[in-house]
Design a protein around this nucleic acid. Structure first.
Length: 228
DNA sequence: TTGGCGATTGGCT
DNA sequence: GCCAATCGCCAAT
């Protein structure tokens, strides 16, 4: 199967029953994103990450997917974990853009964020959903066999499918050997839409959730779906 | 030291 | 639509 080189990978696409594979693509190369590729602005980064790849590769057990949904938590946002200043928990948000901030929520799920500003400024982008690409069987094991559509649809499911936990808190996603951000040589995303964020009790009106319009791999609000 | 609650999810009514 | 699971964080005591 795929031979791993330092910066570029050749990936055979795994066909599965429910897989919605990007049309017209049979083999894709994923190249690491460098820090200089990332916009230095939380909201811009949230939009930029739609269509990019998230890759996890630990001891050859490799999973990856296209990011189809993000949320921005910029400086000054009362819903952001950095709003009340730096603490032991949120410190990775203050690292230079491109570092992972992983937090534990509701006593059972992890969520992955990408730090988004210059070092010393606390803000981040929550990665909420992936379109699974490689390692679909492995994701199914970790998630105890759900449909491909549901494997990484939602931040808690995404972290479980990608085996992301506190071990990755603070790692540099532009340098870490196991968890990293990339771009496919057949990079594709459709129309990126913005709506209000999900699951908040404060700052509910901010249109800082970004997603690929029409993607079946995007998470949805409970109850009535709203758009903006 | 305490207790309310959370950037969620799965299961049940 | 509603609720439980489950635990670390942090504001308030």
């Amino acid at each position: 199967m795929a031979r791993i080189t330092t910066r570029t990978l050749t990936i055979p696409i795994t066909k599965g029953s429910n897989d919605a594979i990007h049309p017209a693509t049979s083999v894709a190369m994923i190249k690491r994103l460098r820090r200089t590729d990332l916009p230095i602005d939380t909201i811009e980064l949230a939009r930029f990450l739609i269509g990019k790849m998230l890759v996890h590769d630990l001891r050859g057990r490799r999973t990856s997917g296209r990011i189809v949904e993000t949320e921005a938590y910029p400086v000054g946002d009362a819903a952001g974990h950095a709003f009340r200043g730096k603490t032991g928990r949120n410190a990775p948000l203050y690292l230079a853009r491109g570092h992972a901030y992983v937090y534990f929520v509701y006593g059972m799920y992890y969520c992955l964020n990408v730090s988004s500003e210059r070092a010393g400024i606390g803000a981040g982008v929550l990665v909420r959903a992936l379109e699974p690409f490689e390692g679909i069987d492995l994701m199914k094991e970790r998630r105890s066999a759900s449909s491909v559509r549901d494997l990484a649809r939602g931040p808690g499911r995404l972290a479980l499918a990608m085996a992301i936990d506190l071990r990755y808190n603070g790692v540099d996603l532009c340098a870490d050997p196991s968890l990293w951000l990339g771009v496919s040589d057949s990079e594709y995303h459709g129309v990126v839409s913005a709506t209000t964020r999900i699951g908040l009790s404060r700052e509910r009106g901010r249109p800082w959730r970004f997603y690929e319009r029409g993607s079946a791999f995007v998470s949805a609000r409970r109850g009535r779906q709203r758009s903006a």
